[in-house]
Write a protein that binds this DNA or RNA. Structure first.
Lengths: 142, 142
DNA sequence: GTAGGCGTTGACGTGGGCGTCAAGGCAAGA
DNA sequence: TCTTGCCTTGACGCCCACGTCAACGCCTAC
């Protein structure tokens, strides 16, 4: 199998495969014309890489999985090094989700505050003898 | 106030301020020497930008807030355009948190499966007349 | 012959928000 | 006078996973 066919079967591009080879992640044999040659095992490795990439793993993080498969293990995560990457990624995800959730709540609070201020200004405009001045409540200046 | 002082007071760098000016976000007056000159209002604008940046807003997303302040409004989010950005950012955060949470659960499941497989292999090695062969349970080949 | 379709290497572009030189100007203090 | 310390513009680097283009080679079909 040559590079175009492998790329098509894995749903990726030849550029990506050449990039993986340059990074030492997915080396290829060569035929008489200098063309890259791959087999079904390479497809398996490539699928492993792509799956992890879809999960947001960096390329280097996929390396233990690929090497585990190449060592003959049944799954890419059959090796301790892969489990270490799993756990580290879980920690990273938890930290990131926590940060994003905190930001989300902060932004939601700011939006509610800004909408309330807007509504109060509108009400004030409707009632000429409205609330007293001097009602500054502070903004978001950290 | 010159650029170094403003940067120090805002906890950022002169490079950042020049970058903001190049993007048209925080233009500066010039003194006789061609040096950039800022006032307290600019510090306010800069603090607004930095706060939103800390929340993960892109620079362009801070523009409505800055222009709102420069138009004389009491807060950067006193204008409808800013509220639109708030709501869009909330939607983005919700989508992102949802995706990350789904990935987190998937990875956690993979980790549990891989650990179970490892433990079963270890148990099998301890009990020579252990379970029958042919127990492949499938991996993560999408 | 020639057009098409596959492959090759090399090199530059992308996005975002800056960091990091390089080369120079201008003002104040020892 | 010389240093120092601030400022100026311009340009390249970074990260990451590729996209895109250039210029070329090989094989097949018409």
């Amino acid at each position: 199998m040559r590079i175009g066919e492998l790329a098509a079967r894995a749903g990726t591009t030849t550029r990506t495969l050449r990039y993986y080879e340059a990074r030492g992640l997915l080396p290829a044999r060569r035929d008489g014309n200098g063309h890259r040659t791959y087999d079904e095992g390479d497809l398996r490795l490539l699928e492993q890489i792509r799956t992890l990439q879809d999960f947001g793993f960096g390329l280097e993080e996929t390396r233990p999985f690929v090497e585990c498969l190449r060592a003959g293990h049944p799954e890419g995560d059959s090796c301790p090094a892969s489990l270490v990457v799993y756990r580290r990624k879980l920690d990273e995800l938890d930290a990131l989700i926590g940060q994003l959730t905190a930001v989300r709540e902060t932004v939601a609070g700011q939006l509610r505050r800004a909408e309330r201020a807007r509504d109060e200004l509108a009400a004030e405009a409707l009632v000429p003898g409205g609330p007293e001045p001097g009602c500054e409540l502070g903004g978001m200046t950290r």
